[in-house]
Nucleic acid binder design. Structure first.
Lengths: 192, 192
DNA sequence: GTCTATAGATCGATAGAC
DNA sequence: GTCTATCGATCTATAGAC
């Protein structure tokens, strides 16, 4: 059923998202993955910490390929921003899914994964700011707006989970859809 | 030193903020509070769960007295919003302190405290929307902007913790200071 | 109320047979 | 690679003396 180490990563990611790092006990992991302890330690000799690190690495790679790079490669910045919002909406399942990186940042495992957590958000801000800059915003303004957008999304995930209502995330996406691209479109940059 | 149950609540709150619910082991709590296990169980017969519930209740009461009610009682809505931002900045220590309610919402203890978590954010949005409405915004617009502001703050706390940089929270406060009250001021409502 | 001692469960991780 | 069995540490919680 599961032959490769990579095959369990999505399941592991879901487990860490639902239970956090401390809360994801080996008992839970064994049950959900269907693998025995020995198999898990065969794939991840470093135990839970290596499992979470591998998950973070895969998440980083996914965002790099599906969010960050497209933000920079797409020639039309307006379309680049729209693509990002669509990718994010799909990834977080319209708010039903929590951001593991954000959850780890708020939890007690932050120090353990400080570097990848820091890098994930920094990279996101950088790619988003770059697109906004190409869309006509000044460097400082683009960086600030990028940070605001990411914070809005992360906060919306908190609210969606607090209320058990994906609508909170959907509404945040709509606000960004209506706001960010409109300000960023070069041909209408004199709007304000 | 510590005679009353209420005296340990601030320390308990800080412990839960730093370690989360699962990560706050009794060993940590004993060490940080200076109380023995027996004393803790004397004050909180329900154990950790009762400790966290008491902390949440105190947080809710603090925000009710220092944030939510002032938002509604202050006659000048513009000043009410400024007061809220100042109170929030002080409470979260300019971003060095995490929001326990938000952290619990993202963590694995969400189900355990679903009701107070849900109520905290709902009450905040309601009080904020009420002030924005008095400031001239339509009901729907006020509710939406209130939700956006709260999400921005929660997301900024995630970023501040991820980057270990209180500046992320400070910048979010400044954005709200510059944006929310200006749109909300009734005499300039025709600005857009 | 606070102490010491400890129960009973679960934790992450390992050993060794196959 | 996967199994069973188990280690030692840590967990929450309790018992009983004072």
């Amino acid at each position: 059923m599961v032959a490769e180490r990579e095959d369990v990563l999505p399941t592991l990611a879901e487990i860490f998202r639902e239970h956090g790092f401390e809360g994801a006990s080996l008992a839970v992991i064994v049950r959900r993955t269907g693998l025995g302890k020995s198999s898990l330690y065969h794939f991840f000799p470093g135990g839970k910490e290596e499992m979470a690190a591998a998950v973070l690495k895969e998440i980083e790679a996914w965002f790099e390929a599906n969010v960050f790079l497209p933000l920079e490669k797409e020639a039309d910045p307006h379309r680049a921003l729209e693509n990002m919002l669509h990718a994010v909406e799909a990834y977080f399942q319209s708010g039903r899914r929590v951001c593991l990186v954000g959850a780890l940042a708020l939890g007690d495992a932050r120090d353990r994964f400080a570097a990848p957590i820091r890098a994930y958000f920094a990279r996101w801000r950088e790619a988003l700011a770059e697109a906004l800059q190409r869309a006509g915003l000044a460097r400082a303004e683009a960086k600030d707006l990028a940070e605001e957008a990411i914070a809005s999304l992360q906060g919306a995930l908190v609210l969606a989970r607090a209320w058990d209502d994906p609508g909170a995330f959907r509404r945040a996406l709509n606000r960004l859809k209506a706001r960010v691209p409109a300000r960023a479109r070069p041909m209408h940059s004199a709007r304000r």
